[in-house]
Write a protein that binds this DNA or RNA. Structure first.
Lengths: 223, 223
DNA sequence: GACGATATGGCACTCAGTACCCTCTGTAAA
DNA sequence: TTTACAGAGGGTACTGAGTGCCATATCGTC
């Protein structure tokens, strides 16, 4: 029944537009009572994103069992979970993307959905980094970065009409975040640049990348 | 008139709650016609954020003339502009924060407002980093990071009841973003860590910080 | 005093969302 | 077979946000 309603709603939104479609139109096409619509969807907007509630639960469950994964990797994998929901139905996702782009109300609604993913991730990261000190700050910035990167990759794919490789686009975007925030500095030496002056930096082995960066700058005296 | 309406609306929202206050209640207290309310505020929610439209214009104007400022500094300063709007009216901002926390509809609305700041910043950064390649990605991730950091500092201050130093809280939060994304690596040497193994890194002088980080990691072979 | 422009009020309407109650259907116990 | 019950769906009436349209000031200008 939920599916029947979501299907009827989406068809009508594509045909007439979101605002031009009333809930009565939807239930008429679905052949059910008006009251039943609101039993399955709290608002008209919800019918456009029928699968996000389940996906959010998946993400929450995944992070609850993320165990000893590197934190940035964990939330990146959580983001990939969301991507998979989109890439599982390319045509639907692309059509919904175009619809959402046109309708301010749907854009706003989508924001609130995305925000819940972000807060779930931030909550997980707070648990890993600690609530005190800058742990919460770092958690929120990283969560926002991961979400932004995910959305960038996702939209790149959606704009392509679902033709390209969604996973690759998002992996690439997440790579930038991981490179900056991930704790991947375990000791190594970079090859010196061929051109002109070079900088030599020394940092403690095993320090997380963000801390190395911080240390570099504070040593430079610009912190 | 706008102010009269906003004032009356806010008072009522505090007294009875947002959802328990109808537009008729507001216009009755303000002593104006119902139709006038919607002339000044497109929606009931807008009356809670009467100054964001002007602030967004300020931010846009600021970034339009940001000239040769370092990009991350420019958007950070833009965020400070937003903060100033909040800190100019501490009592109001704190009350509004508490109200917004309680009312889902207001939270969603605030999200859409914040999103516009973020997009303005991302647009500016795209202009600086270039739309092609990873310029757009970097622009969006940095914009999201700056907004997240700003909000973290702002909320810390708001939760304190407007007692602490808002500027300091936000400066501190933005510092983390600048340290990671700002181009502040102009050549220097860090003092070696006292404990155990150290890492020696060599990078081109003048390279932006994010590129240094990228270079380090790709040299490590984890990219 | 006539006139046009701009600001405001009033009225009626649509539609999302909710509260309340009804009906139907299937199930299990008597 | 009848009765009791539960749960899914339907119907009705209501509130309240937001819009369109028109009437009415109010004010500066000629």
């Amino acid at each position: 029944m939920r599916e029947v309603l979501a299907e009827a709603a989406f068809q009508l939104f594509l045909e007439r537009g979101f605002e031009q479609t009333t809930v009565d139109d939807i239930v008429a096409r679905a052949g059910v009572g008006r009251r039943s619509f609101f039993r399955y969807f709290p608002s008209k907007e919800d019918a456009v994103f029928p699968d996000h509630e389940r996906c959010l639960a998946d993400v929450t469950a995944f992070l609850a069992e993320a165990g000893d994964l590197e934190p940035v990797e964990a939330v990146s994998d959580a983001a990939r979970l969301v991507l998979r929901m989109y890439s599982a139905n390319p045509e639907f996702s692309v059509q919904r993307y175009r619809l959402t782009r046109e309708v301010p109300g749907l854009r706003t609604y989508e924001l609130s959905v995305v925000r819940r993913y972000e807060q779930t991730m931030a909550g997980y990261l707070r648990g890993r980094y600690g609530e005190s000190g800058d742990g919460a700050l770092r958690a929120e910035v990283i969560a926002a970065s991961v979400v932004a990167a995910h959305n960038n990759g996702l939209r790149t794919w959606l704009r392509s009409g679902g033709e390209g490789d969604a996973e690759a686009a998002v992996d690439h975007a997440l790579g930038m975040v991981r490179r900056v925030w991930g704790s991947g500095a375990d000791g190594a030496a970079a090859t010196p640049s061929a051109e002109g002056d070079v900088v030599v930096m020394v940092a403690a082995k095993g320090a997380p990348m963000w801390r190395v960066v911080q240390q570099i700058e504070s040593a430079i005296g610009q912190g």
